[in-house]
């Protein structure tokens, strides 16, 4: 498996990471190195093997339907770069 330059640009765009043109080649090489490293896993035959979701056989924990959280908008917004009247404020996202 090999990552070409178009794929690097596409992945960067999907992750909303700005990538300069001169970085594309280097990033492609790095991604290929990672993929080569994990490619060894492909040699294992997993036909008929269920994906492992937990190392211990256990049931997912569930919560009761009770309100136990929230009510601290100040804390939620504490690290917001910009806020207004307890709203997060971001650059306009519609035309």
């Amino acid at each position: 498996m090999s990552v070409d330059q178009a794929t690097v640009r596409r992945i960067a765009h999907l992750a909303r990471i700005a990538v300069e043109d001169q970085e594309v080649e280097r990033l492609g090489a790095e991604l290929n190195a990672i993929l080569d490293f994990v490619a060894e896993l492909s040699s294992v035959d997993v036909a008929g093997v269920e994906p492992l979701t937990s190392v211990l056989p256990m049931q997912m924990k569930k919560r009761q339907d009770v309100v136990t959280d929230g009510g601290f908008a100040d804390a939620i917004l504490a690290n917001a770069p910009e806020k207004d009247d307890h709203y997060f404020v971001v650059p306009k996202v519609v035309e």
Binding site: V67, A73, I76, H86, F88
Partner: peptide
Amino acid sequence: TSKAKLFSGASAEYGGEPNDHVSLVDA
């Protein structure tokens, strides 16, 4: 229809003051 959210204990009630029904999970 539920009192709390799907994966957190914050209120699922409609409306409310901005960002008041928000847990650290929801944020």
